[in-house]
């Protein structure tokens, strides 16, 4: 797990279409999955009961789709810095993620209009299988008065 965040604020003028966001790697422990179930009052057995998860056809307990969504949200808010505001976020859960494995969060600047930046963001395995493609709209501060 990485909780690194930029110490300096990104401004809209710092960016160009095609810029890549820094890669962040996440890896959930079994304890984290349990805590996330508890914090969200989610009793679904596929997230803590290995035998039951296998009975439903999963190879192991699986990472909650919304936890990966929250990681994606954090990926964007960390990048946007304290003065940035995330206005929109969409993702598709295409494949399950497992505990104790590394997943990469990546992003690229797709568009800039005024102070609104559109990003493609996604979660993938280290060998490039995209588990969760997404998009975000972020409003960033400007270095000039608008």
């Amino acid at each position: 797990m990485s909780t690194d965040r930029r110490s300096s604020q990104v401004h809209v003028e710092d960016l160009a279409v095609g810029d890549e966001l820094p890669v962040v790697v996440r890896n959930a422990s079994r304890v984290q999955l349990f805590l996330y179930s508890a914090a969200t009052w989610n009793p679904h057995r596929i997230h803590y009961d290995t035998d039951y998860a296998r009975f439903e056809g999963h190879p192991d307990i699986i990472v909650h789709g919304p936890l990966q969504g929250a990681w994606l949200s954090q990926y964007v808010t960390d990048w946007a810095g304290p003065a940035g505001r995330v206005k929109g976020l969409r993702w598709q859960n295409r494949a399950s993620a497992l505990p104790e494995r590394d997943y990469e969060f990546r992003g690229i600047v797709r568009g800039i209009e005024g102070t609104t930046v559109t990003l493609d963001v996604w979660e993938q395995t280290p060998d490039g299988q995209v588990l969760m493609p997404g998009e975000a709209e972020v409003v960033l501060p400007s270095r000039v008065d608008r």
Partner: peptide, 30 residues
């Protein structure tokens, strides 16, 4: 936030939240 692993100060520190432009502590968007 702790279960997600998101320790952004704007969720934990009132001063950090205010200096980032929030009225008081904010929460993870989702």
């Amino acid at each position: 936030a702790q279960a997600v692993g998101d320790l952004n100060p704007v969720y934990f520190d009132e001063e950090a939240a205010r200096s980032a432009g929030y009225r008081t502590l904010t929460v993870p968007p989702t």
